[in-house]
Design a protein around this nucleic acid. Structure first.
Length: 813
RNA sequence: GCCUGGGUGGCGAAAUUGGUAGACGCGCCAGACUCAAAAUCUGGUAGGGGCGACCCUGUGAGAGUUCGAGUCUCUCCCCAGGCACCA
C-alpha cells in the first residue's frame, strides 16, 4: 500500500530557501556582527576569476566542499564568516576581451553577474555584504597601498633585468609563470628580454618561507611543492683566479669535496666576465656561440637530453686546490640565473660535466671512490655520484664526502680566503611589472630629478584610465603609454613635471592579499580595519586547488610576512589550515572544451537541483583526490533525496526503534568526525546507509529517526534539509537556530556482537555472542558451529587467539 | 633523474589503522506496478565450482614477518601530479 504523497521538486525548494535565507539575513553580516562574533571561524575558498565561460564544475566542486565545511561549523555553533569575491584583473580577462573584441571594463561586470547567479544557486553560504572585486577602485586602491607598503619597507625594487618575455602575451612573466620554458597561459615559448622591472624581494624571505612550512597544517602535496620551489641547497662559494688576468671567477658548488677533480670551468654565456677574459683569437667563436644561444628560446635551452655545446674562451683559471691551470669555457648548460652563473666542472662526479668533458676531450679525474675501494686510478666510464671517500686529493685523501666538504672549505677559507659556505635558493625575486592594460597601475611617479617617487597615500587610487585601444604591442611598453593625459603629471616631491609608471602589477598581487581585505571590505577609508583583522585573521580554513601551490599560496605567504614586518599585521602566516582538493575529471581526463566534455553547473542545477549536484560531487571520490564525473551517477544522490523526502512525509510519531537508534548514533559519530576532516564521500555513504536501515523491509520511518538525519545532511544538502525540517514543525529553520546532534557512546554498541571464527586464519563461521563474552564462552559457541566443528576435526587445536568482542582464531595442526 | 600521491569487482570507491575484503553508489540482471514506456519499488550482483549446506581463488608482481596482511618490511612494475642541464 503506497500513500500518494507530494513529489520532491528540488528547484522550488531551493528557490524558496535561497530567498528565505536572504530575507532572514542568516548569512549576511554587518561590521558590528563581525566585531561581536564570539567564536569566529573564517572559512575561505579561492575566489574565481570571472571568465565568460561561466563557472566550471571544478570551481563548484571546490566551493561545495568548502561550503560544507563552513555550514558544518556554523551548525556546531561557530560564527562562520564565508566571503566570496572576484579576481577579475589580469591577463586572463584581458586576453578574453581581446578575443571577443570587447573592452574588459564592459565585459567583466557581465561575467560577474553570471557568476554571482550560479554562486547563489548552488547554495553557497556567502556573505554578500563583504564581497570584493579586484577591479573596482575601492579594492585596487588598497592593492596599490600594499605595493607602497612594500616599497617603503625596502622590499620593492626597480632594476634592469633579464626577464621572461612572452611574445604572445607581450609581457614579462614571473618565474613561477614559466612552465618548462613555456608561458603558463598561452604555451608560447618564452624569450629572454632585458627590461626595467619592479621586483618584490621575496628571496629575502626564502629561509623563513621554508622554515615556517614545518608548522603549517597544510596538505602534504602543497608543502612539498613549496619546499621544492624554494629549492634550498647547501654548499660553498669558491674563488678561482683567472691566469694572466686580474679577475676571479666565483662559483657555487654543493660538492667542495670534489674540488681536486675540477679540471675545467664553465661560465654561463651571459656571464659578465666573458668579454674581458676571452682571448682575442677566440672572440669570434665566442660571439657566434652567444648569438646562437640567444636565438634559441628557453624551451630548447632547457631540454635536458640534448647534446652538450660550448666554446673554449682561450684563457685559464687556477684550481685553488691543485694550482693547476684549467681551461675556461662557456656553455648553455650553465644558467646565469642560478648560483653564481659559473661552475667548477668536475666530470668525474657530475653527469653533466662528464658528458661535456667527453664531448670536448677534457680530462676526467676520479677524486671520490666508493668506500669498499677498488683502484683509485682506474678510469671512469661514467660520473660517479655516490657516497665514498676522497682520493687523489692530497692531504684530504681518506675523508668521507661529508667530512671532506667541511674540511676543504675550511682549508680554502683559512689559507687563501678563497671559499665560504653558502646556501643557495632556487627561488627568484618576484617580478611584479606587467606591460599590459588590465591591472592596477603601479603607484609610482618617475621624476628626472628625484627618480622613482611613490604616490602619496592620500593621492590613491591611481585610477586606471578607460582605454579604447588597450592592445599590447611588441615594444615592451604598456598600452598605458598611449594615455598621455593620464601619465603626464608632476613629481610629488619636487613639483617638476614627471610621468607615471605605465606598467600595471601582476594579477597575483591582487589575489595575494584579498583574504586580508574581506572582513574590512566595507571600509572605504582603510585597507584593513584593525579590530576586524584582529578578530578574523589568520584564516581558519582555506580550501583550493593545488595548481596555486607555488604561485598564489607562496605570494600570499610572502605578502603576509612582509606586511607583518612593516608593522601592518601581527601574524606572519595567513592560512592556519590549507587543504588542496582533487580534480574533477571527465572520462578519466581533464575536462576540456575542445573535447566537448564540459559539464555546466547551471544545467545540472536546472535538471537535478543544487542539493543533488552537491551530494554527487562530494560522493565522487575522496575530496582531496577528486574523481571522475559520470552523469549517470547523479541518480544515486537523487534517489537518496527522493527516498528521504518520501520517508519524512510518510513518517509517524514514536521513539526510535532500538536497532535503528544504534545505527543512528553510529551515523552521527561518523558524519561528525568525517565532515570537518573533508571525508565527505564516506560521510554521505553513512547517511545513505542509515536511510536504508530506517526504510529496511518497507517499514514506516519514525520522525525521531529522521529528524537528526536532516541536521547531519544540512551542510551537504541545505535546501531539502531546511524544507523537511520546517515540515516537521520547526518554524525557525536549521540555519539560524538548530544545533548539531550529539551521539551517545553507550548507544553505539549493541549488547551482542558477531564474532568471526577462523580456523588457521580462514573464516569458517560467525557466532553471535554477548559483547563481553569470555574466551571460553566464545570457544564453546564456536565448537558448536557445525562448519567450524568440521574444520576442527582435521586435527587438534594447538593455539587459540582471542580478541574480545572481535575475533576468534583457532590454529589446528 | 629527484620529490609527492596512488594501483582493490564491469565502473566510482569503502575497510574502525594488523582482525568477517568489496560498505555506499553507478551500471547490469530478475521481478512488481503499467495496454506500453518512463519514473518508482523489491531482490540479486568479485571470479570459478557445487542442486545445496559449502569449497577454491582473489586487493599491480614477487619474496618476507605474523595465528592472521589491502594494511607492516624488502625488491620490482605501472599510473597521476610537482620539480628538473639548479652546479
Amino acid at each position: 500500500m503506497t500513500v500518494e504523497t507530494e513529489r520532491y521538486d528540488p528547484r522550488a525548494v531551493e528557490r524558496k530557501w535561497q530567498d528565505e535565507w536572504d530575507r532572514r539575513g542568516v548569512n549576511l553580516f554587518t561590521d558590528d556582527d563581525l566585531k561581536n562574533a564570539r567564536d569566529p571561524y573564517y572559512n575561505l575558498m579561492m575566489f574565481p576569476y570571472p571568465s565568460a565561460d561561466g563557472l566550471h564544475i571544478g570551481n563548484i566542486f571546490a566551493y561545495t566542499g568548502a561550503d560544507v565545511n563552513g555550514r558544518y561549523w556554523r551548525l556546531r555553533g561557530k560564527d562562520v564568516f564565508e566571503p566570496i569575491g572576484f579576481d577579475a584583473f589580469g591577463i586572463h580577462s584581458e586576453n578574453y576581451a581581446l578575443k571577443v573584441g570587447a573592452n574588459p571594463n564592459d565585459l567583466i561586470p557581465q561575467n560577474i553577474a553570471n557568476f554571482t547567479r550560479v554562486l547563489r544557486q548552488f547554495g553557497g553560504m556567502y556573505d554578500w555584504n563583504h564581497e570584493v572585486n579586484t577591479t573596482r577602485v575601492d579594492y585596487y586602491r588598497w592593492t596599490q597601498w600594499v605595493f607602497l607598503k612594500l616599497f617603503r619597507g625596502g622590499l620593492a625594487e626597480r632594476r634592469e633585468a633579464p626577464a621572461n618575455w612572452c611574445p604572445s602575451c607581450k609581457t614579462v612573466l614571473a618565474n613561477e609563470q614559466v612552465i618548462q620554458g613555456l608561458c603558463e597561459r598561452c604555451d608560447s615559448a618564452v624569450e629572454q628580454r632585458s627590461l626595467p622591472q619592479w621586483f618584490f624581494k621575496i628571496t629575502r624571505y626564502a629561509q623563513r618561507l621554508l622554515d615556517n612550512i614545518e608548522g603549517l597544517d597544510w596538505s602534504e602535496v602543497t608543502r612539498k611543492a613549496q619546499t621544492n620551489w624554494i629549492g634550498r641547497s647547501e654548499g660553498a662559494r669558491i674563488d678561482f683566479p683567472v691566469a694572466e688576468h686580474d679577475a676571479v671567477i666565483n662559483v657555487f658548488t654543493t660538492r667542495p669535496d670534489t674540488l681536486f677533480g675540477a679540471t675545467y670551468m664553465v661560465l654561463a654565456p651571459e656571464h659578465p666576465l666573458v668579454d674581458s677574459i676571452a682571448t682575442p683569437d677566440r672572440s669570434a667563436d665566442v660571439e657566434e656561440y652567444r648569438a646562437q644561444v640567444t636565438a634559441r628560446d628557453l624551451v630548447e635551452r632547457q631540454k635536458v637530453d640534448k647534446e652538450k655545446t660550448g666554446v673554449f674562451l682561450g684563457s685559464y683559471a687556477i684550481n685553488p686546490a691543485t694550482d693547476a691551470r684549467i681551461p675556461i669555457w662557456i656553455a648553455d648548460y650553465v644558467l646565469m640565473e642560478y648560483g653564481a652563473g659559473a661552475i667548477m666542472a668536475v666530470p668525474g662526479h657530475d653527469t653533466r660535466d662528464f658528458e661535456f668533458a667527453e664531448t670536448f676531450g677534457l680530462p676526467i679525474v676520479r677524486v671520490i671512490a666508493p668506500a669498499e675501494d677498488e683502484d683509485p686510478s682506474a678510469p671512469l666510464t661514467e660520473a660517479y655520484v655516490g657516497d665514498g671517500v676522497m682520493v687523489n686529493s692530497g692531504r684530504f685523501d681518506g675523508l668521507s664526502v661529508a667530512d671532506g666538504k667541511r674540511a676543504v672549505v675550511d682549508w680554502l677559507a683559512g689559507e687563501k680566503g678563497a671559499a665560504r659556505t653558502h646556501v643557495n635558493y632556487r627561488l627568484h625575486d618576484w617580478c611584479v611589472s606587467r606591460q599590459r592594460y588590465w591591472g592596477p597601475p603601479i603607484p609610482i611617479i618617475h621624476c628626472a630629478d628625484c627618480g622613482p617617487v611613490p604616490v602619496p597615500e592620500s593621492d590613491l587610487p591611481v585610477e586606471l584610465p578607460y582605454l579604447r585601444d588597450f592592445r599590447p604591442d611588441d615594444s615592451g611598453v604598456s598600452p598605458l603609454r598611449r594615455a598621455r593625459d593620464w601619465f603626464e603629471t608632476t613629481c610629488p616631491d619636487c613639483g617638476s613635471s614627471a610621468r607615471r609608471d605605465t606598467d600595471v602589477t601582476d594579477n597575483f598581487l591582487c589575489s595575494g592579499w584579498y583574504f586580508l581585505r574581506y572582513p574590512s571590505a566595507r571600509r572605504d577609508d582603510l585597507a584593513l580595519d584593525p579590530e576586524l583583522t584582529k578578530k578574523w585573521l589568520p584564516v581558519d580554513s582555506y580550501i583550493g586547488g593545488n595548481e596555486h601551490a607555488v604561485l598564489h599560496l607562496m605570494y600570499a605567504r610572502f605578502l603576509t610576512m612582509a606586511l607583518h614586518d612593516v608593522g601592518v599585521l601581527d601574524f606572519d602566516e595567513p592560512f592556519t589550515r590549507f587543504r588542496a582538493h582533487g580534480l574533477v575529471l571527465s572520462e578519466g581526463r581533464k575536462m576540456s572544451k575542445s573535447r566537448g566534455a564540459v559539464v555546466l553547473p547551471n544545467d545540472i542545477i536546472e535538471r537535478f537541483g543544487a542539493d543533488t549536484m552537491r551530494l554527487y560531487l562530494l560522493f565522487l571520490g575522496p575530496y582531496e583526490q577528486g574523481g571522475d564525473w559520470q552523469s549517470t551517477g547523479l541518480q544515486g544522490p537523487r534517489g537518496f533525496l527522493n527516498r528521504l523526502w518520501q520517508g519524512v512525509l510518510a513518517s509517524e510519531e514514536g521513539p526510535p526503534d532500538g536497532e535503528v537508534e544504534r545505527e543512528l548514533h553510529r551515523t552521527i559519530k561518523q558524519v561528525t568526525e568525517q565532515t570537518p576532516a573533508l571525508q565527505f564521500n564516506t560521510a554521505i555513504a553513512a547517511m545513505m546507509g542509515y536511510l536504508n536501515t530506517v526504510r529496511a523491509g518497507g517499514r514506516t520511518p519514525r520522525r525521531s529517526e529522521l529528524e537528526p538525519l536532516l541536521l547531519l545532511l544540512a551542510p551537504y544538502a541545505p535546501h531539502i534539509a531546511e524544507e523537511l525540517y520546517a515540515r516537521m514543525g520547526h518554524a525557525d529553520g536549521i540555519f539560524g537556530n538548530a544545533t548539531w546532534p550529539d551521539y551517545d557512546p553507550v548507544k553505539l554498541v549493541g549488547e551482542t556482537a558477531e564474532i568471526p571464527v577462523q580456523v588457521n586464519g580462514r573464516l569458517r563461521g560467525v557466532v553471535e555472542m554477548p559483547r563481553d563474552a569470555s574466551e571460553d564462552a566464545v570457544l564453546e559457541a564456536a565448537r558448536g558451529n557445525e562448519n567450524v566443528a568440521r574444520h576442527l576435526a582435521a586435527g587438534t587445536v594447538r593455539k587459540v587467539i582471542f580478541v574480545p568482542g572481535k575475533l576468534l582464531n583457532l590454529v589446528v595442526g
